[in-house]
Design a protein around this nucleic acid. Sequence first.
DNA 1: TTGTATGCGTTATCAC
DNA 2: GTGATAACGCATACAA
Lengths: 316, 316
Amino acid sequence: MVRIADVAAHAGVSTATVSRVLNGVKVRSDLENRVRLAVAELDYAPNRTARSLRRQLSDVIALIIPDVENPFFTSVARGVEDVARAAGLSVVLCNADDDVAKERLYLAVAEHENMAGVILAPAGDAAPDLSRLIRRDRAVVVIDRAVGEDVDQVVFDNYSLGRRAAEGLIARGHRDIACITGPRTTPTAVERATGWRDALEEAGLSSSRLVYANFRVDGGRSAMADLLAAQTPPEAVLATNNLVGVGVLQVLAGRSGPNVDVGIIGDLPFATSDVDEVFHLSLQPREMGVTAARLLVDRIHGSAAAPETKVLLGAP
Amino acid sequence: MVRIADVAAHAGVSTATVSRVLNGVKVRSDLENRVRLAVAELDYAPNRTARSLRRQLSDVIALIIPDVENPFFTSVARGVEDVARAAGLSVVLCNADDDVAKERLYLAVAEHENMAGVILAPAGDAAPDLSRLIRRDRAVVVIDRAVGEDVDQVVFDNYSLGRRAAEGLIARGHRDIACITGPRTTPTAVERATGWRDALEEAGLSSSRLVYANFRVDGGRSAMADLLAAQTPPEAVLATNNLVGVGVLQVLAGRSGPNVDVGIIGDLPFATSDVDEVFHLSLQPREMGVTAARLLVDRIHGSAAAPETKVLLGAP
DNA sequence: TTGTATGCGTTATCAC
DNA sequence: GTGATAACGCATACAA
């Protein structure tokens, strides 16, 4: 391994001078040239472990997501990466696998690896413990689920999303509109369902057909199967996230019978059917990633502004 | 921050003893108890940056994939994570975004962060430069695309996959079977297409309908559109990867006309249609991740066996 | 077996 | 503006 001392010897300067050149501190230009030449000749790259030990900070940020197999979160990741890279930061993606214990582990890793910051999409329904990171002045941004006011957040206006989706289905002339949402303990699921309910009630329609399912494909499948098993299937059904929507469409595709209209909050990048007829609200997940990363980069660069919660509306 | 010295003072022992306890080295049991108590009371966790600087090795492995939005690679990631976690290693997922420059960057990061190992799914068509990592005795496993014999690899038998998929379509009674594969410069795409061609020729069928597309959804879409624009559409079409298959199904879904049978090499976790009719070869991507991670963990634990190439067949 | 002391490679503080 | 050197927190060679 070639170290900074090797470069210094090769260039005939001290390690301090090499370090200054590498970190953009002003140095006499002839010395700088010698250093740059030596760096190139020796193919030197700083040892980032040593650097972060000394600086008490690395140039890596963690993006902790609950499900790496959910296209929503991978799109968020793309947004985060693009912004972070432009700011000279590397992103490491951590998959908490819907497990708060794994999430805690990754938060601890981020802390002890001296990572510059963390973007967290919480896995569980309870607020994660960010106090250790915050106490150590690490930048933190929470996305997707609000956890409180003392940290930067990027969330959707879930109530509005539920409302707009329901209104879209009402505008199509439906009167019997069901909703499949996530668990009662998941605030985003409940908020979206509340928006759906209010829209229906304001239109004088019944909001009795609300199903709480798990927020994954199989949840959407079994909930939709239940709805179809009812005496009269609904005219339309709203799926409040992308995976549930996939499950709903799968069940409807394998079936004949009266048509059921579908509304989905979320995106379907891998749809294998013609989904033009689906009433679809794009969440623009990449924007969530971009917004969160910008917030985080500002914090890392030392912004001392009060914590901020950005509310995203999804596609118009 | 609480350091090892704080724990030592609190327990009335030396830092060396604390370090020994934490690293499983035998220590007098009453001292060990005092250390463990102090660790618990102070909520001490070792600084991993300092540890990896000292050990010249961290307990993190990198999984570098070309496209975090491709469900194939996220499933691979799940397999890697499960095995790595069981071995006490953290996985950081790096998205090269189909860009060999980003891939090189992540390889450099893995090197300079002293990561214990790297699992790489190469992005480009040229073999990546792994010599620096190998020279520094880092564990490396290459997956999906073979790059040579001097490193552990996990790949599919792509020729056999193409052949079996084509044979499946032939067995359904088709005689005019097209194939949409990836770029000519991508060996996996060419190998699968070659299997398809040989199966057709052995059956006395024409293998003239071969289309090279990009290996993504839009590639599948435009290639399928081209095939449909021909004087007579094919009776069946083989898509040689999952994304191309999605594109093919999308085009067919939005269309009336003579039925076109579909074969796909790969998995469709987010299909929104009834895909039971599709002739489908599962690649079992999770198995690829598990296999690669086991190989890597063995290397990290010091295996000096000759580099090995594991060939996966996909689902029977 | 336990403790002391050194070094991992870098950056930052100090004196020049 | 430059160089010598002391940390950063930990693991280990060596001494006891």
